[in-house]
């Protein structure tokens, strides 16, 4: 298609190409590329508000001596390490169960499990905050069936507050991931499963040896998406746990810390930009790592 580059037709073709892509590219340049470079520059500045001066690596050194940052980093990594695998596995199991055409009511089950995706992050966080209140429906149910003796302090205890955030995110996003797997499963030849079944391969082995390897590209894709999402966690933590970061910052995330640094405390743009670049680097590293691991296993 690139052959008609020379002469009048080629020029006409090329000018039109640029005209079509120009609006989107200039908006992305102005509101994505320019700000991301600006915050890189900002991360080498220090000062309050708009009064900034060059500070070299002072902000990066400050990171390692800032217990609140280290806490936010640990929390963010905890969410990522614990929540993403649980959710992906759950979504995979649900998808392979609901892919079975002999399962009656699978349309209903799919819709039901997908339904959380229509809620806004704020709305479901608010709902969960009410459900997990000290005497709320969750604690009273758990007590009624005898699983716990006294109410769990979901919102006020560091460990339980973190657990609650993980439960909430899993509720919201499992169905979303499941939809990707269901779509990918439809492209797998059903006869593979039939042959395996006839050969006496048990269900669990069919799952680990057929489903997971065949779905690897989609699993990789959803893992990257979830990673980027988890590392940017903000809405849920801000609305779910008390004190905008939970009991003694137990649920504080990097995004929330950046927000606090910029808009709640004395604005410290340079340092906040440095923290934001920690997320940039983490996203890039983890995405690269996931692609690398997936490629390794392919051999």
């Amino acid at each position: 298609m690139v052959h008609a580059r020379r002469g009048g037709i080629g020029r006409y073709y090329d000018v039109n190409g640029w005209l079509f892509v120009a609006p989107a590219l200039s908006l992305i340049a102005l509101f994505m590329v320019y700000p991301i470079l600006w915050s890189l520059w900002m991360s080498f500045q220090s000062g309050r508000g708009m009064m900034m001066k060059f500070a070299g690596f002072a902000n990066i050194i400050r990171l390692w001596n800032d217990p609140v940052f280290l806490k936010a980093l640990t929390n963010t990594m905890t969410y990522f390490v614990v929540q993403v695998p649980i959710m992906i596995l759950l979504a995979l199991i649900l998808a392979s169960l609901l892919n079975n055409p002999r399962l009656t009511g699978r349309g209903f089950f799919r819709t039901a499990i997908f339904l959380p995706c229509v809620t806004s992050l704020v709305a479901y966080s608010v709902l969960f905050k009410g459900m997990f209140a000290p005497d709320g429906i969750v604690n009273s149910t758990l007590q009624a069936i005898g699983l716990i003796a006294s109410p769990i302090p979901w919102l006020t205890h560091p460990f339980w507050a973190k657990t609650l955030v993980i439960i909430a995110i899993t509720w919201r996003w499992t169905g979303y991931n499941m939809i990707f797997y269901l779509a990918a499963l439809q492209n797998i030849d059903k006869s593979i499963y039939e042959v395996a079944r006839i050969d006496g391969v048990p269900a669990w082995a069919r799952f680990t040896h057929i489903t997971i390897p065949l779905l690897k590209p989609v699993i990789l894709f959803t893992t990257v998406i979830s990673t980027i999402g988890t590392l940017q966690l903000f809405d849920e933590v801000y609305n779910l746990t008390e004190g905008k970061g939970g009991p003694s910052n137990a649920t504080l995330t990097l995004s929330l810390y950046i927000y606090n640094l910029t808009f709640r405390f004395m604005p410290s743009f340079g340092y906040a930009a440095t923290v934001s670049y920690v997320i940039v680097v983490l996203v890039a590293l983890l995405a690269a790592l996931q692609f690398y691991l997936a490629r390794e296993r392919e051999r």
Partner: peptide, 19 residues
């Protein structure tokens, strides 16, 4: 352009706010 998909919003909000 596809690389910008990886940019977290947290790294944009301060410059965007100033802009």
């Amino acid at each position: 352009m596809l690389l910008t998909l990886m940019i977290p919003f947290a790294a944009l909000m301060i410059p965007l706010f100033i802009m």
